[in-house]
Simulated assay, not measured.
Amino acid sequence: MKTDRRKQIFIRCCYGYSVSGMAVLVIGAILPSVIAEAGISFLAAGGLLSVMAVGNLLASFLFPIMVPAMGRRFSITVMTAMAPLCLLGLTLLPPLPVMYGIMLVYGLVRGSVTIINNAAVNDIYDGGAAGKLNLLHCSFAVGAFLAPFLTAVLLKLGFGWRSVVYLLIFITATSAVTYGTMDYSLLNERARDAAPLKHSGKREGREFLKSFQFYCIALILFFYLGVENCINGWFVTYLQNTGVMSETYATTLVSVTWLVIMAGRLVCASLSGKMRRSSLILMNALGSGICFFLLVSTKSLPLITLALIGFGFFLAGIYPTCIADAGPLIQGSTFGMSVLTAISAMGGILTPQIVGGAADHVGIVAAIGILVVNVILVILLAAINRKRLR
Protein backbone atom coordinates (compact mmCIF):
# COMPACT_ATOMS: atom_id res chain seq x y z
CA MET A 1 0.00 0.00 0.00
CA LYS A 2 2.82 2.39 0.89
CA THR A 3 4.56 1.52 -2.40
CA ASP A 4 1.35 2.30 -4.31
CA ARG A 5 1.02 5.65 -2.60
CA ARG A 6 4.66 6.45 -3.37
CA LYS A 7 4.13 5.57 -7.01
CA GLN A 8 0.97 7.68 -7.21
CA ILE A 9 2.74 10.71 -5.74
CA PHE A 10 5.80 10.21 -7.95
CA ILE A 11 3.79 9.87 -11.18
CA ARG A 12 1.73 12.97 -10.47
CA CYS A 13 4.83 14.97 -9.53
CA CYS A 14 6.42 13.85 -12.81
CA TYR A 15 3.38 14.97 -14.79
CA GLY A 16 3.32 18.32 -12.98
CA TYR A 17 7.01 18.81 -13.66
CA SER A 18 6.59 17.88 -17.32
CA VAL A 19 3.88 20.54 -17.66
CA SER A 20 6.16 22.98 -15.80
CA GLY A 21 8.88 22.26 -18.36
CA MET A 22 6.48 23.06 -21.20
CA ALA A 23 5.26 26.21 -19.46
CA VAL A 24 8.80 27.52 -18.90
CA LEU A 25 10.24 26.69 -22.34
CA VAL A 26 7.26 28.03 -24.27
CA ILE A 27 8.22 31.52 -23.08
CA GLY A 28 11.64 31.25 -24.71
CA ALA A 29 10.15 29.70 -27.84
CA ILE A 30 7.67 32.55 -28.39
CA LEU A 31 9.98 35.33 -27.14
CA PRO A 32 11.22 36.37 -30.63
CA SER A 33 7.59 36.74 -31.76
CA VAL A 34 6.67 38.70 -28.62
CA ILE A 35 9.69 41.01 -29.07
CA ALA A 36 8.71 41.69 -32.68
CA GLU A 37 4.95 42.14 -32.11
CA ALA A 38 5.19 44.12 -28.88
CA GLY A 39 8.16 46.17 -30.12
CA ILE A 40 10.23 45.73 -26.96
CA SER A 41 14.02 45.77 -26.56
CA PHE A 42 16.30 42.89 -25.58
CA LEU A 43 16.70 44.54 -22.17
CA ALA A 44 12.92 44.62 -21.64
CA ALA A 45 12.63 41.01 -22.81
CA GLY A 46 15.43 40.04 -20.44
CA GLY A 47 13.45 41.80 -17.73
CA LEU A 48 10.51 39.46 -18.42
CA LEU A 49 12.78 36.45 -17.91
CA SER A 50 14.31 37.95 -14.77
CA VAL A 51 10.92 38.84 -13.28
CA MET A 52 9.83 35.24 -13.83
CA ALA A 53 12.95 34.19 -11.93
CA VAL A 54 12.08 36.69 -9.16
CA GLY A 55 8.71 34.96 -8.85
CA ASN A 56 10.54 31.66 -8.64
CA LEU A 57 12.61 33.12 -5.78
CA LEU A 58 9.58 34.57 -3.95
CA ALA A 59 7.97 31.13 -4.05
CA SER A 60 10.78 29.97 -1.74
CA PHE A 61 9.43 32.30 0.94
CA LEU A 62 5.71 32.38 0.15
CA PHE A 63 5.01 28.69 -0.48
CA PRO A 64 6.45 27.41 2.85
CA ILE A 65 4.15 29.89 4.62
CA MET A 66 1.13 28.78 2.60
CA VAL A 67 1.61 25.04 3.28
CA PRO A 68 1.20 25.05 7.09
CA ALA A 69 -1.50 27.72 6.88
CA MET A 70 -3.66 26.18 4.13
CA GLY A 71 -2.31 22.66 3.59
CA ARG A 72 -0.28 21.18 0.75
CA ARG A 73 -3.25 20.33 -1.47
CA PHE A 74 -4.92 23.74 -1.41
CA SER A 75 -1.63 25.65 -1.68
CA ILE A 76 -0.25 23.86 -4.74
CA THR A 77 -3.66 23.71 -6.44
CA VAL A 78 -4.19 27.46 -6.08
CA MET A 79 -0.69 28.21 -7.33
CA THR A 80 -0.87 25.93 -10.39
CA ALA A 81 -4.33 27.24 -11.27
CA MET A 82 -2.71 30.66 -11.80
CA ALA A 83 -0.60 29.40 -14.74
CA PRO A 84 -3.38 29.25 -17.38
CA LEU A 85 -4.61 32.69 -16.28
CA CYS A 86 -1.11 34.14 -16.72
CA LEU A 87 -0.76 32.60 -20.18
CA LEU A 88 -4.12 33.98 -21.22
CA GLY A 89 -3.07 37.45 -20.09
CA LEU A 90 0.18 37.17 -22.03
CA THR A 91 -1.66 36.53 -25.31
CA LEU A 92 -3.24 39.99 -24.97
CA LEU A 93 0.22 41.65 -25.01
CA PRO A 94 -0.73 44.18 -22.31
CA PRO A 95 1.52 47.14 -21.38
CA LEU A 96 5.01 46.14 -20.25
CA PRO A 97 4.43 46.71 -16.49
CA VAL A 98 1.39 44.39 -16.65
CA MET A 99 3.46 41.81 -18.52
CA TYR A 100 6.04 42.01 -15.74
CA GLY A 101 3.30 41.34 -13.18
CA ILE A 102 2.07 38.35 -15.19
CA MET A 103 5.58 36.89 -15.40
CA LEU A 104 6.10 37.44 -11.66
CA VAL A 105 3.06 35.29 -10.85
CA TYR A 106 4.11 32.80 -13.52
CA GLY A 107 7.46 32.44 -11.77
CA LEU A 108 5.68 31.91 -8.43
CA VAL A 109 3.88 28.96 -9.98
CA ARG A 110 7.11 27.44 -11.30
CA GLY A 111 8.87 27.87 -7.95
CA SER A 112 6.00 26.30 -6.02
CA VAL A 113 5.96 23.27 -8.32
CA THR A 114 9.74 22.89 -7.91
CA ILE A 115 9.53 23.00 -4.11
CA ILE A 116 6.61 20.57 -3.75
CA ASN A 117 8.05 18.09 -6.25
CA ASN A 118 11.63 18.03 -4.94
CA ALA A 119 10.57 17.95 -1.30
CA ALA A 120 7.97 15.20 -1.89
CA VAL A 121 10.30 12.88 -3.82
CA ASN A 122 13.21 13.53 -1.44
CA ASP A 123 11.03 12.64 1.55
CA ILE A 124 9.26 9.52 0.27
CA TYR A 125 12.33 7.80 -1.23
CA ASP A 126 15.04 8.60 1.35
CA GLY A 127 18.25 6.82 0.21
CA GLY A 128 16.96 6.26 -3.33
CA ALA A 129 16.24 9.95 -3.87
CA ALA A 130 19.14 10.64 -6.26
CA GLY A 131 17.87 8.22 -8.90
CA LYS A 132 14.25 9.25 -8.46
CA LEU A 133 15.11 12.96 -8.57
CA ASN A 134 16.95 12.45 -11.85
CA LEU A 135 13.84 10.71 -13.22
CA LEU A 136 11.68 13.53 -11.86
CA HIS A 137 13.82 16.14 -13.58
CA CYS A 138 13.82 13.96 -16.69
CA SER A 139 10.07 14.56 -16.82
CA PHE A 140 10.76 18.32 -16.79
CA ALA A 141 13.02 17.73 -19.79
CA VAL A 142 10.19 15.90 -21.59
CA GLY A 143 7.99 18.99 -21.29
CA ALA A 144 10.90 21.27 -22.15
CA PHE A 145 11.45 19.24 -25.33
CA LEU A 146 7.80 19.34 -26.34
CA ALA A 147 7.27 23.12 -26.01
CA PRO A 148 9.83 24.32 -28.63
CA PHE A 149 9.01 21.32 -30.83
CA LEU A 150 5.27 22.08 -30.85
CA THR A 151 6.04 25.77 -31.41
CA ALA A 152 8.22 24.97 -34.44
CA VAL A 153 5.59 22.59 -35.89
CA LEU A 154 2.66 24.97 -35.41
CA LEU A 155 4.60 27.94 -36.80
CA LYS A 156 5.63 25.83 -39.80
CA LEU A 157 1.96 24.95 -40.38
CA GLY A 158 1.05 28.63 -40.41
CA PHE A 159 -0.40 28.98 -36.92
CA GLY A 160 0.58 31.98 -34.82
CA TRP A 161 2.42 31.90 -31.52
CA ARG A 162 -0.87 32.40 -29.69
CA SER A 163 -2.07 28.96 -30.87
CA VAL A 164 0.81 27.40 -28.93
CA VAL A 165 -0.10 29.39 -25.83
CA TYR A 166 -3.79 28.39 -26.05
CA LEU A 167 -2.72 24.73 -26.08
CA LEU A 168 -0.56 25.36 -22.99
CA ILE A 169 -3.51 27.03 -21.22
CA PHE A 170 -5.43 23.76 -21.44
CA ILE A 171 -2.45 21.61 -20.40
CA THR A 172 -1.55 23.75 -17.38
CA ALA A 173 -5.19 23.59 -16.25
CA THR A 174 -4.97 19.77 -16.21
CA SER A 175 -1.85 20.03 -14.05
CA ALA A 176 -3.80 22.00 -11.43
CA VAL A 177 -6.44 19.26 -11.41
CA THR A 178 -3.73 16.60 -11.00
CA TYR A 179 -2.28 18.27 -7.90
CA GLY A 180 -5.77 18.96 -6.55
CA THR A 181 -6.71 15.26 -6.65
CA MET A 182 -3.38 13.80 -5.44
CA ASP A 183 -3.23 11.68 -2.26
CA TYR A 184 -1.15 13.63 0.28
CA SER A 185 -1.59 11.18 3.18
CA LEU A 186 1.92 9.66 2.92
CA LEU A 187 3.54 13.11 2.87
CA ASN A 188 1.50 14.11 5.90
CA GLU A 189 2.61 10.94 7.70
CA ARG A 190 6.25 11.70 6.95
CA ALA A 191 5.79 15.23 8.26
CA ARG A 192 4.33 13.87 11.52
CA ASP A 193 7.16 11.35 11.85
CA ALA A 194 9.72 14.11 11.37
CA ALA A 195 8.07 16.43 13.91
CA PRO A 196 9.83 15.04 17.05
CA LEU A 197 13.18 15.30 15.28
CA LYS A 198 12.43 18.84 14.20
CA HIS A 199 11.70 19.90 17.74
CA SER A 200 14.80 18.11 19.06
CA GLY A 201 16.93 20.25 16.76
CA LYS A 202 18.34 17.30 14.81
CA ARG A 203 16.07 17.49 11.82
CA GLU A 204 14.70 20.98 11.41
CA GLY A 205 17.40 22.48 13.66
CA ARG A 206 18.75 24.31 10.62
CA GLU A 207 22.18 22.81 11.14
CA PHE A 208 22.61 22.95 7.36
CA LEU A 209 23.04 26.74 7.68
CA LYS A 210 26.43 26.05 9.30
CA SER A 211 27.51 23.59 6.60
CA PHE A 212 30.13 24.64 4.03
CA GLN A 213 28.95 21.82 1.78
CA PHE A 214 25.42 23.24 1.74
CA TYR A 215 26.61 26.65 0.52
CA CYS A 216 28.97 25.08 -2.01
CA ILE A 217 26.07 23.11 -3.50
CA ALA A 218 23.83 26.19 -3.36
CA LEU A 219 26.38 28.26 -5.29
CA ILE A 220 26.77 25.54 -7.91
CA LEU A 221 23.01 25.79 -8.40
CA PHE A 222 23.20 29.62 -8.37
CA PHE A 223 25.51 29.73 -11.39
CA TYR A 224 23.95 26.68 -13.04
CA LEU A 225 20.44 28.15 -12.93
CA GLY A 226 21.70 31.35 -14.53
CA VAL A 227 22.86 29.24 -17.47
CA GLU A 228 19.65 27.17 -17.57
CA ASN A 229 17.38 30.24 -17.52
CA CYS A 230 19.33 31.74 -20.41
CA ILE A 231 18.96 28.49 -22.37
CA ASN A 232 15.23 28.54 -21.63
CA GLY A 233 14.78 32.20 -22.50
CA TRP A 234 17.52 33.34 -24.84
CA PHE A 235 18.81 30.43 -26.88
CA VAL A 236 16.14 30.43 -29.61
CA THR A 237 16.82 34.15 -30.09
CA TYR A 238 20.60 33.56 -29.87
CA LEU A 239 20.63 30.75 -32.42
CA GLN A 240 18.49 32.75 -34.86
CA ASN A 241 20.90 35.68 -34.58
CA THR A 242 24.01 33.61 -35.31
CA GLY A 243 22.97 33.88 -38.96
CA VAL A 244 23.81 30.25 -39.69
CA MET A 245 20.35 28.70 -39.23
CA SER A 246 16.67 29.35 -39.87
CA GLU A 247 14.05 30.14 -37.22
CA THR A 248 12.58 26.64 -37.54
CA TYR A 249 16.00 24.98 -37.22
CA ALA A 250 16.85 27.08 -34.15
CA THR A 251 13.57 26.26 -32.39
CA THR A 252 13.87 22.59 -33.28
CA LEU A 253 17.50 22.47 -32.08
CA VAL A 254 16.57 23.83 -28.65
CA SER A 255 13.80 21.22 -28.53
CA VAL A 256 16.25 18.43 -29.45
CA THR A 257 18.62 19.73 -26.77
CA TRP A 258 15.97 19.08 -24.14
CA LEU A 259 15.42 15.60 -25.58
CA VAL A 260 19.14 15.02 -25.00
CA ILE A 261 18.80 16.49 -21.49
CA MET A 262 16.13 13.87 -20.85
CA ALA A 263 18.57 11.15 -21.97
CA GLY A 264 21.31 12.69 -19.82
CA ARG A 265 19.10 12.56 -16.74
CA LEU A 266 18.29 8.92 -17.38
CA VAL A 267 22.03 8.18 -17.58
CA CYS A 268 22.61 10.12 -14.34
CA ALA A 269 19.78 8.21 -12.67
CA SER A 270 21.57 4.99 -13.64
CA LEU A 271 25.01 6.21 -12.52
CA SER A 272 23.78 7.70 -9.24
CA GLY A 273 23.92 4.29 -7.56
CA LYS A 274 27.44 3.57 -8.83
CA MET A 275 29.26 6.90 -8.38
CA ARG A 276 29.64 9.46 -5.63
CA ARG A 277 27.20 12.29 -6.21
CA SER A 278 30.02 14.85 -5.95
CA SER A 279 32.00 13.01 -8.65
CA LEU A 280 28.94 12.89 -10.90
CA ILE A 281 28.42 16.65 -10.49
CA LEU A 282 32.06 17.37 -11.38
CA MET A 283 31.98 15.09 -14.43
CA ASN A 284 28.86 16.83 -15.74
CA ALA A 285 30.31 20.28 -15.02
CA LEU A 286 33.49 19.53 -16.98
CA GLY A 287 31.62 18.00 -19.92
CA SER A 288 29.16 20.90 -20.16
CA GLY A 289 32.03 23.42 -19.92
CA ILE A 290 33.91 21.87 -22.86
CA CYS A 291 30.77 21.82 -25.01
CA PHE A 292 29.82 25.40 -24.11
CA PHE A 293 33.24 26.77 -25.08
CA LEU A 294 32.92 24.97 -28.42
CA LEU A 295 29.40 26.38 -28.88
CA VAL A 296 30.37 30.03 -28.45
CA SER A 297 33.64 29.82 -30.40
CA THR A 298 32.40 28.45 -33.74
CA LYS A 299 30.11 29.54 -36.59
CA SER A 300 29.93 26.07 -38.14
CA LEU A 301 26.35 24.75 -38.15
CA PRO A 302 27.38 21.07 -37.62
CA LEU A 303 29.70 22.03 -34.72
CA ILE A 304 27.08 24.31 -33.13
CA THR A 305 24.54 21.50 -33.36
CA LEU A 306 26.97 18.96 -31.86
CA ALA A 307 28.12 21.35 -29.12
CA LEU A 308 24.58 22.29 -28.04
CA ILE A 309 23.53 18.64 -27.90
CA GLY A 310 26.61 17.76 -25.83
CA PHE A 311 26.04 20.80 -23.62
CA GLY A 312 22.51 19.64 -22.88
CA PHE A 313 23.60 16.06 -22.18
CA PHE A 314 26.21 17.02 -19.58
CA LEU A 315 24.17 19.85 -18.08
CA ALA A 316 21.27 17.46 -17.52
CA GLY A 317 22.24 15.85 -14.23
CA ILE A 318 23.69 18.81 -12.35
CA TYR A 319 20.52 20.20 -10.76
CA PRO A 320 18.87 16.94 -9.58
CA THR A 321 22.18 15.46 -8.39
CA CYS A 322 22.93 18.64 -6.41
CA ILE A 323 19.47 18.45 -4.81
CA ALA A 324 20.14 14.82 -3.87
CA ASP A 325 23.63 15.72 -2.59
CA ALA A 326 22.07 18.31 -0.29
CA GLY A 327 19.29 15.90 0.73
CA PRO A 328 21.00 14.50 3.87
CA LEU A 329 21.59 18.05 5.08
CA ILE A 330 17.97 19.24 4.71
CA GLN A 331 15.93 16.01 4.89
CA GLY A 332 12.48 16.67 6.32
CA SER A 333 12.91 20.47 6.18
CA THR A 334 10.73 22.52 3.85
CA PHE A 335 12.71 25.52 5.05
CA GLY A 336 15.98 23.89 3.97
CA MET A 337 14.67 23.12 0.48
CA SER A 338 13.33 26.67 0.25
CA VAL A 339 16.69 28.22 1.20
CA LEU A 340 18.46 26.07 -1.39
CA THR A 341 15.87 27.02 -4.02
CA ALA A 342 16.11 30.70 -3.08
CA ILE A 343 19.90 30.88 -3.45
CA SER A 344 19.80 29.09 -6.78
CA ALA A 345 16.92 31.28 -7.99
CA MET A 346 19.02 34.41 -7.51
CA GLY A 347 21.31 33.22 -10.28
CA GLY A 348 18.33 32.75 -12.54
CA ILE A 349 17.18 36.30 -11.80
CA LEU A 350 20.43 38.15 -12.44
CA THR A 351 21.90 36.35 -15.43
CA PRO A 352 19.11 36.78 -18.06
CA GLN A 353 18.89 40.49 -17.20
CA ILE A 354 22.66 40.94 -17.56
CA VAL A 355 22.65 39.08 -20.88
CA GLY A 356 19.64 41.09 -22.15
CA GLY A 357 21.22 44.42 -21.18
CA ALA A 358 24.48 43.48 -22.88
CA ALA A 359 22.61 42.30 -25.99
CA ASP A 360 21.22 45.81 -26.61
CA HIS A 361 24.81 47.09 -26.86
CA VAL A 362 26.83 44.24 -28.41
CA GLY A 363 24.14 41.92 -29.80
CA ILE A 364 22.72 38.71 -28.38
CA VAL A 365 25.41 36.51 -29.95
CA ALA A 366 28.25 38.32 -28.14
CA ALA A 367 26.19 38.73 -24.94
CA ILE A 368 25.76 34.96 -24.53
CA GLY A 369 29.55 34.85 -24.01
CA ILE A 370 28.88 36.24 -20.52
CA LEU A 371 27.77 32.74 -19.53
CA VAL A 372 31.43 31.64 -19.73
CA VAL A 373 31.82 33.07 -16.20
CA ASN A 374 28.95 30.92 -14.90
CA VAL A 375 30.27 27.78 -16.56
CA ILE A 376 33.80 28.25 -15.14
CA LEU A 377 32.47 28.86 -11.61
CA VAL A 378 30.24 25.77 -11.76
CA ILE A 379 33.34 23.70 -12.62
CA LEU A 380 35.44 25.25 -9.83
CA LEU A 381 32.74 24.84 -7.17
CA ALA A 382 32.05 21.26 -8.26
CA ALA A 383 35.77 20.50 -7.89
CA ILE A 384 35.84 22.10 -4.41
CA ASN A 385 32.74 20.14 -3.39
CA ARG A 386 34.31 16.84 -4.46
CA LYS A 387 37.72 17.58 -2.91
CA ARG A 388 36.21 18.62 0.42
CA LEU A 389 34.14 15.43 0.62
CA ARG A 390 37.24 13.34 -0.12
Rank of each mutant, 00 (worst) to 15 (best):
A152N: 11
L380C: 15
T151V: 11
A83H: 00
V254G: 02
Q353P: 04
S300H: 09
V113C: 05
R6D: 01
A38D: 03
D123C: 01
A263P: 04
G107C: 05
M82W: 14
L253E: 06
Q8W: 13
I318L: 03
S200Y: 06
C322A: 14
A307E: 00
G317W: 01
N374S: 03
G71M: 04
L155I: 03
A191W: 04
I102E: 14
M99S: 09
A382L: 06
L108H: 08
I40R: 12
V121P: 09
H199P: 06
Y15V: 14
C86Y: 11
S18Q: 12
V372R: 05
I220P: 00
A36E: 15
I281D: 06
W234F: 04
F313K: 02
L154C: 06
S272I: 00
M346H: 02
T257D: 01
G16T: 12
L221Y: 07
I9S: 04
T298P: 01
R192Y: 09
A29W: 03
T252Q: 02
T91P: 05
M337P: 10
A44M: 13
L57H: 01
G111A: 12
L150Y: 06
L295C: 10
C322N: 13
V51Q: 00
P302I: 03
F223M: 05
N118V: 04
A367E: 03
F170P: 02
S278P: 01
G289R: 05
V365C: 09
A324N: 13
P32I: 04
M70H: 14
W161Q: 00
C14K: 12
G312S: 07
A359Q: 05
L57Q: 02
N374P: 07
